[in-house]
């Protein structure tokens, strides 16, 4: 059968409740698989794009994630929502993809870290920002700016930041996923946050001295 001939069920014909969807999936119902992909695919693609800069890689990770999920459906115990389960799987697939790639030299993070004088004082004294995170992020432009700054972090630091601060995974789980020690995760997380702070600072720094 060619790709175009795979039936596309109408959403209205398909099970809408998660537990009945799960029953249909386990029964091998073709329409249920299509509903699963169409319902959860957009969010999974967005998550894959956070980790993988190339669109083709993000799409591959989503495809791989769904295949892994289909294979593991029998073991899914419904102690969390399907969306949460799929989210974890796609993060894993994205990280596997990164690990399987040939490592390229990264921009040194030191260029983005704060600088100090010989006596240990801040070389460029910090100032408070002009608003709180909630207020700043009300603007779509600022949200795009923060995301572009996160994208500018060297990949190995950005991944730690995404897993710890955004996915809210534990240090131990992050270390396991990235094949690092917990100590290295802590150091990278701190440096990633410092570097991100340094990238955001010129945009949000208050004009007034505290």
């Amino acid at each position: 059968m060619d790709e175009a001939s795979v039936p596309i069920p109408a959403a209205a014909d398909a099970p809408d409740d998660e537990s009945s969807l799960l029953v249909s999936l386990r029964r091998g119902d073709e329409a249920a698989f299509a509903v699963l992909v169409r319902t959860h695919g957009p969010r999974m693609l967005a998550v894959a794009r956070r980790y993988l800069r190339q669109e083709e890689d993000a799409r591959d990770a989503v495809q791989e994630a769904f295949i892994n999920a289909f294979k593991a459906l029998g073991a899914f115990e419904a102690d969390c929502k399907l969306g949460t389960w799929l989210h974890r799987i796609v993060v894993n697939c994205a990280l596997m993809k990164i690990r399987s790639r040939e490592r390229k030299p990264e921009q040194p993070i030191e260029d983005l870290l704060p600088r100090y004088k010989n006596n240990g004082h801040q070389a460029d004294p910090a100032k408070r920002w002009s608003g709180h995170a909630d207020r700043i992020l009300e603007s779509k432009q600022n949200r795009a700016l923060v995301r572009s700054c996160i994208d500018r972090l060297p990949e190995s630091y950005r991944n730690v930041l995404l897993l710890r601060d955004i996915e809210e995974m534990s240090t131990e789980e992050t270390a396991r996923l990235l094949d690092m020690t917990t100590g290295a995760v802590k150091v990278r997380l701190h440096r990633a946050r410092q570097a991100l702070r340094g990238l955001l600072d010129p945009h949000f720094r208050s004009g007034k001295k505290r």
Binding site: M1, E30, V37, G41, R43
Partner: peptide, 29 residues
């Protein structure tokens, strides 16, 4: 901000998955 920018940013999520990707996933299954 790092946490909130992904929590709140609905702009990040595409309305739908490209149809060729949906079909590729269903074909793989």
């Amino acid at each position: 901000m790092g946490k909130q920018v992904f929590e709140e940013d609905a702009d990040e999520i595409p309305e739908e998955v490209p149809e060729d990707l949906v079909q590729a996933i269903l074909e793989s299954r």
